[in-house]
Simulated assay, not measured.
Amino acid sequence: MKYIILVLICFVSQYIFAQKNTGELPLPVQKKVDSLFASFDHLNTPGYAIGISKGAKTLYKKGYGSANLDYKIAIETNSAFSIASVSKQFTAACIALLILDGKLTLETPVSKFVPELNKYADTIRIKHLIYNTSGITDYHKLKRPGGKSWVTFNYFDTDECIATSLAVDTLQFKPGDQWDYCNVNFMLLTKVVEEISGLPFSEFAKKRLFEPLGMLNTIINDDATQIVKNRVTPYNPRNARYVEGYKEYGIQLKEEGEYIQHPRISPHYGGSGVISTIDDLLKVER
């Protein structure tokens, strides 16, 4: 998967910087892009939606494969994907809006909005959360209360993740001294947004970010039961590696079949949780 993405980016970049931008990719280039996804371009396999843009111009967009193997629904550019950790940039954008509103700065102590952080001797500031330098231990590195695993088949939410991380009485390092990727940093940022705005994070993001950008099919998925138009079902390959990996998390699977369906039933957000489409994501560049 990483190989495909890297080849796509490198090839298109070479073309874009070598040629004058005419507003779309020439047909030969489109065919080369399509060839990268040819093995996924049928309804018997999970697939991809791609968008290629330069500045405000969309050069190419297309869907490949199936959004749902139960019903063999084709992926389109308006198919709604859970974009996982790419969500973090939108969480940070919400904080940026509040900074522009004059409600806080990068130097503001987070404990002003999340009093539980007062127990730490060193001050965690907004910038430490955004830049992953807080020293907070991420939830999935810790044992989950109750003994269940953190695999998303087992329901958990943002509050449980934060509570698990903040139950640790010491930071891994002094804030600002090191970098350590941490989803809870961005979960805490959603609490800051909610405390300042008085709105659920999903509502703030909708009103202040998604709607102004015209991203009308983008949401914060903070409810596992929510109906999402054109939602894409996630899958993993059903091979020995994945089957054994699931078993390690207490999920017993059959071995026959090509794919493992893996729906998102744990509605944590901030570090993830955004559901969006290629059509909407292309609007961010405009």
Rank of each mutant, 00 (worst) to 15 (best):
residue 179 W to G: 02
residue 97 L to I: 13
residue 3 Y to P: 14
residue 113 F to A: 05
residue 43 L to V: 04
residue 253 L to C: 06
residue 158 T to N: 07
residue 185 N to R: 13
residue 51 G to T: 00
residue 92 A to Y: 07
residue 35 S to R: 15
residue 238 R to W: 13
residue 37 F to D: 08
residue 195 E to D: 12
residue 125 R to T: 12
residue 150 W to M: 04
residue 176 G to H: 06
residue 15 Y to V: 07
residue 155 Y to L: 05
residue 77 T to L: 09
residue 202 S to D: 06
residue 183 N to Q: 11
residue 194 E to M: 07
residue 108 T to P: 13
residue 231 R to N: 08
residue 95 I to Q: 02
residue 103 K to D: 10
residue 120 Y to A: 00
residue 146 G to C: 06
residue 150 W to R: 00
residue 25 L to D: 03
residue 79 S to K: 05
residue 81 F to Y: 06
residue 53 S to A: 15
residue 22 T to R: 12
residue 238 R to M: 11
residue 26 P to I: 07
residue 177 D to V: 00
residue 19 Q to D: 14
residue 79 S to M: 10
residue 270 G to S: 10
residue 131 Y to M: 11
residue 55 G to P: 09
residue 67 A to F: 14
residue 60 Y to L: 08
residue 182 C to L: 13
residue 52 I to P: 11
residue 235 Y to R: 04
residue 26 P to D: 04
residue 79 S to I: 05
residue 163 A to D: 10
residue 207 K to I: 00
residue 59 L to H: 08
residue 16 I to T: 05
residue 140 H to L: 01
residue 139 Y to A: 01
residue 281 L to I: 15
residue 146 G to R: 08
residue 279 D to M: 02
residue 231 R to M: 12
residue 123 T to N: 04
residue 145 P to Y: 03
residue 220 I to F: 02
residue 199 L to E: 13
residue 259 Y to G: 04
residue 245 G to V: 13
residue 90 F to S: 02
residue 216 L to K: 12
residue 60 Y to K: 05
residue 111 S to L: 07
residue 103 K to I: 09
residue 91 T to D: 01
residue 114 V to E: 03
residue 46 P to C: 06
residue 255 E to D: 11
residue 64 Y to G: 03
residue 123 T to I: 10
residue 187 M to H: 13
residue 206 K to V: 00
residue 174 K to T: 10
residue 172 Q to Y: 04
residue 235 Y to G: 08
residue 258 E to L: 15
residue 91 T to S: 03
residue 31 K to L: 13
residue 89 Q to D: 01
residue 216 L to E: 10
residue 101 D to L: 05
residue 265 I to W: 06
residue 235 Y to C: 08
residue 171 L to C: 02
residue 77 T to S: 11
residue 21 N to H: 10
residue 1 M to Q: 10
residue 47 G to S: 11
residue 172 Q to T: 04
residue 190 T to R: 09
residue 189 L to M: 12
residue 220 I to Q: 03
residue 164 T to Q: 02
residue 12 V to I: 15
residue 105 T to Y: 09
residue 76 E to T: 15
residue 24 E to H: 14
residue 70 D to K: 15
residue 58 T to N: 14
residue 284 V to G: 00
residue 110 V to F: 15
residue 258 E to P: 14
residue 284 V to I: 09
residue 56 A to V: 12
residue 21 N to E: 14
residue 83 I to A: 06
residue 17 F to A: 10
residue 218 T to D: 01
residue 115 P to E: 07
residue 78 N to F: 06
residue 214 G to D: 03
